[in-house]
Simulated assay, not measured.
Amino acid sequence: MGAGVVLALVTGVTLVLFRLGVESNIPGFNPLLKFFADASGDWLKLFVISAGTATVALSAAGGLLSRYVPWLRAPLDAALDVDNHFREFPRRAIPRARIFSRFVAVLNCIAAQSYDHIIIVAHSQGTVISTELLRYMKERTTHGQAEQAMDPVASLWERLGGRIALVTAGCPLRQLYAARFPVLYEWVLGQHGPNLGPVADDVGVLRWVNLYATGDYVGRWLWSRAPHGEYPVTQIDQAGAHGDTYTPHRVDTTHWKTLMGANTEKDISIGAGAHTHYFSIDQKTMAGVIDALLAS
């Protein structure tokens, strides 16, 4: 640990203790601590307000940006999605928590039905929301300390009964989230045998199919062979299966067994395209994958 990090930690702890009423015995030190404690609070408040104002301004200006600088709209949308996902304020209306609560309400409704199979189809930022919620529900049920009968989340997970398959498209988990937030998304780059990537069991699903277009600027493949040499793990252009990552994959969607083989995870390239055409009327691969998983 560097000296700068240690100094920052000591300073932070000292300021927190002073705010809690723990004073120093060093003569003349307490007024100095009070000054920096008050100043740090003002600086933090200014930073939060400035960041929030900038975010609101950029969101409100989206229409103008699309008209006059359309090349900026796509990266700005991605940045705002990430900001919204990690935002912790206001405490009573955290965006991520509100989204998760709606998602859980839908899952509660689905769990009350007698469906044999449940297919969750997610696109773009929705893939991050879906995988994080499913992973949380699975981990809470598996490692929860409370009685599961008293825990609504664990009870819901049990009622879903291992019936879920997941289809993701334009998924930014690897190329964006794992690349920029490697500690939070370390599980996305886990190594399992010769392959690198998440596994279906990480998020508690039976099967996980990921579709990507070769020109998708938000997210593409999830699985690759383990890295060799100097290449970063998030930039390897090698799929887990043999073949060119950028060539459309031929898949047999007659049944999930012909689609998946012995695997529980599968990347499928749909060929040339960007981020918004996975559900076009002529996109037969997506429809075939969903039909195959329903035929389980």
Results as ranks from 00 to 15, higher is better:
Y136T: 06
A37N: 01
N25P: 07
D81W: 10
R102K: 13
A57V: 15
F36M: 05
H123Q: 09
E139A: 10
R135Q: 04
K34F: 02
R91T: 15
G62E: 13
S124H: 04
T55W: 00
S101N: 10
L33E: 06
L107P: 03
P31Y: 00
C109T: 13
G28V: 08
I164Q: 05
F100R: 14
S24F: 06
T141Y: 07
W71I: 12
F35E: 01
G41E: 12
S114G: 06
D83G: 09
G41P: 01
I49V: 13
S101A: 14
Q113C: 06
T141S: 07
E88M: 08
P90R: 09
T127K: 05
D42M: 11
E139T: 12
Y68G: 07
D151I: 07
L46M: 12
L80F: 05
R96F: 06
S66D: 14
R67D: 14
A60P: 03
I129G: 00
E147N: 14
D83K: 09
H85N: 07
I49D: 10
R91M: 10
I110T: 02
A74W: 04
F89M: 15
T131S: 07
V128A: 05
N30P: 00
G41C: 12
A61M: 15
L44Y: 13
I118Y: 06
D42T: 08
G62K: 13
A57L: 14
Y68A: 13
G28S: 07
L65R: 12
S114N: 15
T53F: 08
P152A: 07
T142G: 00
F100G: 09
A93F: 10
H143G: 01
T53Y: 07
L64H: 14
G28A: 05
A97P: 07
K45G: 03
L156D: 02
N30K: 01
A54L: 15
L133A: 03
I118F: 05
V153F: 08
A112C: 02
F35T: 09
G126W: 01
